[in-house]
Amino acid sequence: MTAYIVRRLLATIPVMVVVAMFVFLLLNLTPGDPAAVIAGDDASPAEIEGVRRKLGLDRPLWEQFVIYAWNLARGDLGTSIFSNLPVLTLVKQRLEPSVVLAISTLTVAILLAVPMGVLAAWKQRSWIDRTVMGISVLGFAMPVFMIGYLLIYVFSIELRWLPVQGYRPLAQGFEQTLRSIALPSIALGMVYMALIARITRASMLDVLNEDYIRTARAKGVATAGVLLRHALKNAAVPIVTVIGIGLTLLISGVVITETVFNIPGLGRLTVDAVLKRDYPIIQGLIILFAGVKVLINLMIDISYTFLDPRIRY
């Protein structure tokens, strides 16, 4: 097991190297002059030259790459062109809201979607099943910002139950944080719920047809026991896989959701960087998010061995 984990950890290195090389080459091989684009339309030649120096584009390609790789290896994600702050510092400032949002979205989505999927499979072809599948189809089609604005309109503007926008840090009290994060979590969680509910239903349907389920029923095990202990446990592998795939979907969704709800997290950092064309920040965030994504995939693979003892590495 330990050997397997070590082997998998080593296997993430080439993936991250490809990611790092890609963002590096993107800056250098982009057609046109990135320094001029970043400096903006009405920049003077001197300003363009300044940006070029800051990005290191005035040095030969190999020298740039050595410096870049060395910095990355030391954990330096680069420096913002405009604020001159290290990207890592900016990331730390914006980390809390995004992490809180991601965790609460994950919780909401799993707590709602798994029971929905189980019920839909248990009562296949009933109105429950049709409703769940309907919600799931809608969840895939509704853009996250539409869901967000609809929720704000109904719950914040019409009913006045929750704040319209903004984020309250944990330091100001857990309840305030929860209130500020409730609508964003639901908006962001919709696609995710659609995905999890669908796969839970499909996976449960497969399992419910197995002989041992009939045996359990015949033995007189209560329905809840059959569904949860016998069926759901064995249907778990595909569900966990999809939760992992969904987590990576979440990363893209966070950027848009934070903009809709005006949450000062990593997503806002990304958008502000795009609007100012602050490429080092985007480059750093890509490497960071890619790293998170790779680690999540690794954790999912490892979790299989716990969920299904037949899977051995």
């Binding site: 993936v15 982009t30 990135p34 960087a273 490429y279 998010f289």
Partner: peptide, 24 residues
């Protein structure tokens, strides 16, 4: 496939954002 694995590790929207930052 190694290159594809690397590309897949980058969240789609960020990849698009990076390209758009660098070009008109």
């Amino acid at each position: 496939m190694r290159v594809m694995d690397g590309l897949m590790a980058i969240p789609a929207i960020l990849l698009a954002i990076a390209l758009i930052t660098l070009m008109k």
